[in-house]
């Protein structure tokens, strides 16, 4: 489903290269964990997948269902089925959460040539998805992410994911800032979305999240490259020994 080939990318402003020849393949139905020390390029990779303009790809390609997404803008990528759950969800004063959700859902449907959802259908959908994530609907009356606690923000991200039903979910440090109860709710929400025709890229620092969202594969990112790939055992190994061994072997 996702195939990243020899990707090189840099910060557009400073021309600092962050991703240096990254290769990664994630199949439909697969949950791939990306781990790595600070500064290895994990978050950058998530932004590049989403299409953020602050980064430019200088070499290589990103294929989504066999087609390059490099020429697509952020909204087109999202409408084609790529979803990024932000590490730091953005607060947008003045834009009501419900309006935002409705516009997003309907714009994606429009882009796919589907009919827009009626308001009652939309409300039903939001109500049931919110209940699953233990989100108080009063929260959705507030502007997007404004005044949400860290946990509420992360739950709101997963709610959007559940509503938009993407094909490729990229979760950037979804565990950061969550206490253990909130982590469980979020993980349950993510697990509920696991399906044979959906792939997930789970970016995380710690093994902790992977106890709740059990990955099929684990990839270690270092200096903008995948230096080791394997099964979920790698995560346990990292938890015990830190990154030093793997980085040492790769260097």
């Amino acid at each position: 489903m996702l195939e990243i080939r020899n990707l090189h990318a840099r910060i557009a402003d400073t021309e600092t290269e962050i991703i240096r020849g990254l290769n990664l393949t994630v199949k439909a139905g697969e949950v791939a964990a990306i781990m790595g020390p600070n500064g290895s390029g994990k978050s950058t990779l998530s932004y590049i997948l989403a299409g953020r303009e602050d980064y430019e790809v200088t070499e290589g390609d990103i294929l989504f269902n066999g087609e390059s997404i490099l020429e697509m803008d952020v909204a087109e990528r999202a409408a084609s089925g790529i979803f990024l759950a932000f590490q730091y969800p953005v607060e947008i004063p003045g834009v009501a959460t419900m309006q935002f959700l409705k516009v997003a859902l309907n714009e994606q449907r429009k882009a796919r040539g589907e009919d827009e959802l009626s308001t009652p259908d939309f409300l039903r959908l939001v109500k049931s998805a919110s209940a699953d994530l233990q989100i108080d609907t009063a929260m959705l009356k507030r502007p997007v992410n404004v005044g949400f606690s860290g946990g509420e923000k992360k739950r709101a991200e997963i709610l959007q994911m559940a509503l938009l039903q993407p094909k490729l979910c990229v979760l950037d440090e979804t565990d950061s800032g969550l206490d253990i109860d909130a982590l469980k709710i979020v993980a349950d929400g993510v697990n509920a979305l696991r399906s044979p025709d959906r792939a997930m890229v789970v970016i995380t620092h710690y093994q902790r999240l992977l106890e709740h969202i059990v990955p099929d594969t684990v990839h270690v990112l270092y200096k903008g490259q995948v230096v080791k790939s394997g099964g979920k055992d790698i995560a346990l190994e990292l938890e015990e020994n830190g990154y030093a061994d793997i980085i040492g072997a790769a260097a």
């Binding site: 989403a50 299409g51 953020r52 303009e53 602050d54 803008d73 952020v74 909204a75 999202a78 409408a79 979803f83 990024l84 932000f86 969800p89 953005v90 947008i92 834009v95 935002f100 516009v103 997003a104 714009e107 994606q108 882009a111 997007v144 959007q160 938009l164």
Partner: peptide
């Protein structure tokens, strides 16, 4: 720009 990016990342043109 970060507001624009967030909205567009949800498929809003």
């Amino acid at each position: 720009p970060v507001h624009l990016f967030y909205l567009m990342s949800r498929g809003i043109p």
